[in-house]
Design a protein around this nucleic acid. Structure first.
Lengths: 144, 144
DNA sequence: ACCTAATAGTTGCTTTTGTAACTAACAAGC
DNA sequence: GCTTGTTAGTTACAAAAGCAACTATTAGGT
């Protein structure tokens, strides 16, 4: 008869990924949360606009793999904080171009500094090659 | 004057970790959700008890890094499904030992099979050495 | 014995997320 | 022009997570 393989939870890839993502994510979240009262999705929207320039909510959904309601609410929250403005496109008034305000850019630039410092701190734990491989593998795992 | 470093969101470790964890986690979640209507925390509690034997809710909190309210509700849900039983310890009636029922064990064994298949599918994308390094790094990153 | 502190776990309330239905704007066929 | 279908984004309601206050029980000091 077939003997069952023992299962070790601490060796299960999705579990390890979740633990690592949760630990680093929540640690970094405390920075932008305390500074700007931002939620994780708000941070992502801010960084998408800051890194890649103006785009629509739909674009952010696709790039970040977020649901449109989540983005919609994050955009509203950021607009309330006066970090971005919405401009209906004349050629198709269903779309709206999202643009960071000056204050939004300032917040972005400030948080870029924090992000780089945070990432450097994580990177310091590993060699350059190890880190490159980790990132390559994470990108791979993010795909279905 | 100092020029700002460009920042690439797709190269930010916590972001990559989150994307990878989210993708694999939600794909795996659909298995135990459809089979047993379990939430992620319930799955974790079930697997902690299945893998490591009886323990208290507190033990699970510490091992899994979960808040006690989350565990408390997951335990209640699993008890409702008759997957576990609670037994007050006579020597200290504040603690309760959590034990899987026969049905709980069956569900666990069933899901262990799914977990192993799922993990094998993920592992197939990489070499043995790569995977070992990934896991080592994830464990590292899970620590503060 | 009695008072205070600590601990395991639960409950209530608020915030956040998820899902589905909705609105408004456009497009294509007839 | 008028249906029918599609798309961007919002809203409403339900599920889940987070946080703080609570109960019950034990431990320790006096």
């Amino acid at each position: 008869m077939s003997e069952k393989q023992p299962f070790e939870l601490r060796d299960f890839t999705p579990y390890l990924l979740n633990q690592a993502a949760e630990a680093t994510g929540s640690r970094f979240q405390s920075i932008y949360k305390s500074k700007y009262g931002m939620l994780r999705t708000e941070w992502r929207v801010l960084f998408h606009l800051g890194c890649y320039g103006d785009m629509t909510a739909k674009d952010i959904c696709e790039r970040a793999g977020l649901h449109k309601t989540k983005v919609s609410r994050a955009v509203s929250a950021l607009a309330l904080k006066r970090f971005l403005e919405r401009h209906e496109l004349p050629q198709d008034r269903r779309h709206e171009r999202l643009t960071l305000t000056t204050a939004g850019h300032r917040a972005f630039e400030d948080l870029v500094g924090d992000a780089q410092a945070f990432d450097a701190q994580l990177a310091a734990r590993f060699s350059h090659d190890e880190l490159a491989l980790l990132k390559k593998m994470l990108v791979q795992l993010a795909h279905p």
